[in-house]
């Protein structure tokens, strides 16, 4: 492995301008996408509802006067182009407006909730990717055997289960407890009020709270990664370079680890990142079920009202982060795959 790196270092020097061009193109593309997200955010929450003030107050009776006041407060009494200009200007300064229900800056609310979501989604994604790739590799390598059929059936079944339902079931079985079985894990939130002081007890407490939501997310999303890895490896299985590797006298597992998996991994990486949006969607319902104080729960709270500025904020943040992650993945892919690099 060391020699590859040594050679790689010198080899790439000639392609630096091309790499720079590639990076610039990708970053430019990402910037355009982020711009589109902003425009979409404005369109969805300001233009599409017709009268946002009425939408927000649809569950409570309000007088015409109150409506007018509300419109003035959110700048809705101005012409659309002026609203759009202000929206973009504020966005550039990191100001996402004021929440209708909380009456606090949206940026502040999102900032508070970002940490828990990153913790939960990050942990679950890493675990799901590792588990999915491992299971997918095993299933494909033993293609057609009982192992493969078993893994595939379990994966497909878990993939068909709605995330929130699995969460509710786990919550009932292991949170509340069924029959003689006591509740093993907390049912809501990410920490208990009665934790003894100190770093370790607090970390353990959060981990204890995170078990159920994390298991739920991993169970559903690992299946997708498994199926992708499996079919990607199956596609490589017939490749002639594997016959070459076998002819060289390599052991079966060396052929798999040294030749088949590295090739199959590359398309999988792209797909893993393309499915990040799905993970985000799972996080919204899981956080709702387990009252995990993250962005998902915030979205759920906002859409009940509906608190349009807050929803707009979470939409822009969630969409932008997925775009940023994908751009990083594309840049990473170029480092990983020599065929794209040239």
């Amino acid at each position: 492995m060391t020699d590859t790196l040594e050679h790689g270092g010198t080899r790439r020097s000639g392609t630096v301008p091309r790499t720079l061009g590639f990076v610039a193109r990708k970053l430019g593309g990402a910037a355009v996408s982020l711009g589109l997200v902003a425009v979409l955010g404005f369109f969805l929450f300001r233009v599409l509802p017709g009268d946002p003030a009425r939408t927000m107050t649809r569950s409570a009776p309000v007088s015409a006067e109150q409506l007018a006041q509300l419109r003035h407060r959110f700048g809705l009494d101005q012409p659309l182009y002026a609203q759009f200009r202000d929206f973009l200007g504020n966005l550039a300064r990191g100001d996402l407006g004021t929440s209708y229900t909380y009456n606090r800056p949206v940026t502040e609310l999102i900032g508070e909730r970002l940490g828990p979501t990153v913790l939960l989604v990050g942990t679950a994604t890493v675990l799901a990717v590792l588990l999915g790739l491992w299971l997918g590799t095993r299933a494909a390598w033993r293609h057609g055997t009982a192992t493969d059929r078993w893994f595939t059936s379990v994966g497909l079944t878990l993939w068909s289960v709605p995330t929130f339902w699995l969460g509710l079931l786990l919550l009932m079985a292991f949170g509340v407890g069924v029959g003689p079985l006591p509740g093993l894990f907390p049912v809501a939130g990410m920490s208990s009020p009665d934790v003894p002081p100190g770093v370790l007890p607090r970390v353990l407490d959060v981990a204890h709270h995170m078990v159920l939501p994390c298991v739920t997310l991993v169970a559903v999303i690992h299946a997708q990664f498994m199926m992708v890895m499996r079919s990607s490896l199956l596609e490589e299985m017939g490749a002639e370079y594997l016959t070459t590797a076998r002819a060289k006298g390599l052991r079966d597992d060396a052929v798999r680890r040294g030749h088949a998996v590295p090739n199959a991994l590359l398309p999988t990486v792209t797909l893993v990142f393309l499915h990040l949006g799905m993970v985000v969607a799972g996080a919204i319902t899981v956080e709702t079920v387990f009252s995990w104080p993250g962005l998902g729960l915030l979205t759920y709270e906002a859409l009940r009202v509906p608190d349009l500025p807050l929803l707009q904020g979470t939409f822009i943040v969630l969409a932008s982060s997925v775009i940023v992650m994908n751009t990083l993945a594309e840049l990473l892919y170029r480092v990983l795959d020599p065929r794209v690099r040239a």
Partner: peptide, 23 residues
């Protein structure tokens, strides 16, 4: 293609939530 890729990456459910909230 650019538009397709944009919507492909965008979390579909979040967008669907937004649409069904305002309509």
């Amino acid at each position: 293609l650019r538009l397709t890729d944009f919507f492909l990456v965008l979390p579909a459910l979040v967008l669907a939530i937004a649409l069904s909230t305002v309509l």
